[in-house]
């Protein structure tokens, strides 16, 4: 079903987005198109609103009291996700999310992956088995865990847990995957594995990743957006951002002279 759009066309269009936590504004007039089946990196100093924007895309911010979109819209496939007809649950099935701190359920590995399908009422064992294997392979975890599917997911290493969370996300077949600093709690080896995984996933999913690691952004993203104080400062192909940024603030940031 996914990937019907052509590779270059935007899947998410954010226009003139203002966002507030209570009375505290967090985003101002953000305009951003996120292309389908590419990796878009969001970078910027701490507190500039990257996570906020990310969490807007699957409306996880709905859970925070007082958090609301003040102006502007977010369209996915042209549908305003804050529209009255939109069911947030359906939205989240299309837009998956991987968190900074890996959060596997205290269940078996198998049940973790099957969770999303079970929510949708899938009981068919064969189908579940197939999806579990497919997702774990997709997350490059299959070979490591195939003999211990029934063991607790809490027994995995940090990097494995994070890949499990990715596998769990792709098991529900989203079109967009949001990743909020997925590697910040991992060692370089585990980080490398996740980056590799992201490279593999980009052919099938549109990925938005928040990172503080410039090399990571440079290595694995196609587009990069730089945020500062709640504003989108610059958005361009990653190569351009890192080699010839148009904005001096961007240059200062990516060259590490600032914040």
């Amino acid at each position: 079903m996914p990937n019907q759009t052509t590779a270059s066309s935007p899947i998410v269009e954010i226009s003139e987005l203002d966002f507030c936590y209570g009375s505290v504004p967090a985003l101002h007039g953000v305009n951003l198109s996120i292309p389908a089946r590419q990796v878009t990196a969001l970078i910027g100093p701490s507190g500039c609103g990257k996570s906020t924007l990310l969490r807007c895309l699957n409306r996880m911010n709905d859970l925070i009291e007082g958090a609301r979109v003040v102006r502007g819209s977010i369209r996915i496939h042209g549908v305003d996700i804050h529209g009255p007809e939109v069911d947030v649950i359906e939205l989240r099935k299309h837009v998956g999310m991987v968190f900074q701190k890996s959060n596997p359920f205290p269940k078996s590995i198998y049940e973790n992956i099957a969770y999303g399908l079970r929510l949708q009422g899938v009981r068919d064992r064969a189908r579940l088995d197939a999806v579990v294997e497919q997702s774990l392979r997709g997350a490059a975890l299959w070979d490591e865990v195939k003999d211990r599917l029934q063991q607790s997911a809490l027994g995995l290493s940090g990097g494995q847990q994070q890949r499990l969370c990715i596998a769990r996300t792709i098991a529900v077949e989203p079109e967009v995957i949001l990743m909020d600093e997925p590697c910040s709690a991992l060692d370089p080896v585990a980080t490398a594995k996740i980056e590799e995984l992201i490279q593999e996933l980009r052919s099938r999913y549109s990925i938005v990743i928040v990172t503080h690691n410039m090399q990571q952004a440079a290595r694995c993203s196609d587009q990069t957006a730089f945020f500062y104080l709640g504003r989108l400062i610059e958005h361009a192909p990653t190569r351009d951002i890192f080699t010839s940024p148009a904005n001096p603030q961007t240059e200062a940031y990516v060259s590490g002279r600032f914040g």
Partner: peptide, 15 residues
Amino acid sequence: VPQGLRAAALALGAT
């Protein structure tokens, strides 16, 4: 119960 579990479930499309 850690908040992460709730977030994970919701992000997977749970009501």
